[in-house]
Amino acid sequence: MAIHLGPNRYGKAECRLVAVARDGEHTLTDLNVSTRLAGRLDATHLTGDNSDVLPTDTQKNTVYAFARRGVAAIEEFGLDLARHFVAGTDAVERAQVHVEAYGWRRLGGHSFARAGDEVRTATLTATAGQAWAVGGLHGLTLLNTTGSEFRGFPRDRYTTLPEASDRILATAVDARWRFASLEVDWDAAFEQIRGHLIAAFVETYSRSLQQTLYAMGERVLAHVPEVAEVRLALPNRHHFLVDLSPFGLDNPDTVYFAADRPYGLIEGTVQRDDAPEPGLAWDLGAA
């Protein structure tokens, strides 16, 4: 029986980093950084030879040391780290850095409040000759109280769902977008993309959450030329009318039960026809 080592990678997961810039009004940066390295690492798996293994503790220390220089856009920070690991370690052929940024709302010159559950993300991948950037967000919760329906679906012996001609549509957006180049104003692009995702959700009369997903991705690509494709995962946060008849009350689309599970999960990708190939943008792939 033939056996061989398949794709592999290693790194330091979830390095929590809070940086405070103290010039004038304080600025707070709150990050969660994960590193993944791949390359010529067969020996450590097959014989326990660690001569090519940059310790994960060193990777963690590098994250903090780079933060000492200051953290601007998370895409730039992650790209600097990924390139460093490829350039500085002979056996490392590919490096990926994933960054999550948690928002804080300013209350005063040095006071802040956590700004909800929404998280900005960036995944940067580098080799000796190329680099790729993927931006994103998750936890962006959106809701339309009307302007949504779901009708005309097939029925079988197990179908009990009634058709809905007017329903609440709610979701928590998980979006990632692949940039076509690295010549990007990262912060400005993020704000534009986030704004277009929201605008498409608000302005689209939805006959299905799939239709809304496509409208959101299409709008981003139509307005942000730096983006090559958008991947979206939209959980359908169901809202069910509560039966108030046992209490002698009607319920004219007023009182709902917000169910957290189970939920429908709609996923899809919207791409430009002429988008460059993704390379290793989405994942490290084979080692």
Rank of each mutant, 00 (worst) to 15 (best):
A2L: 14
T62L: 14
V99N: 01
N61Y: 04
V242D: 12
D52E: 10
W282D: 12
D185V: 06
T160S: 13
G136R: 00
S148N: 06
V184M: 13
Q210Y: 06
E14Q: 14
E277M: 14
H45F: 12
Q211D: 01
G11T: 00
D185N: 11
S245W: 09
L244T: 08
S181C: 09
G268M: 05
V53D: 03
Q210M: 08
V242L: 15
S208F: 00
D49I: 03
Q59C: 02
S165C: 10
F150K: 03
M1D: 10
A188L: 14
A275P: 11
G103M: 04
T141Y: 05
V33K: 00
S245I: 11
A287Y: 04
D185S: 09
G116E: 07
R106Y: 02
W186I: 01
A43M: 01
A95F: 02
T212D: 02
G139L: 05
D42E: 14
R194C: 12
H223Q: 13
P262K: 11
G136T: 01
D250A: 13
A115H: 14
L249C: 10
D117I: 06
A38C: 05
F201P: 00
L197E: 00
L107V: 13
T146A: 15
T123F: 03
H110I: 06
P7F: 06
A259R: 15
D90N: 11
L31G: 02
L249Q: 14
V20N: 10
D80V: 06
R106W: 02
G88D: 08
A67D: 05
L197F: 00
T145P: 10
A113F: 09
G195L: 04
D42M: 05
D80A: 13
V242I: 14
R9M: 03
H4T: 12
N251F: 09
A2E: 10
G129V: 06
R237Q: 14
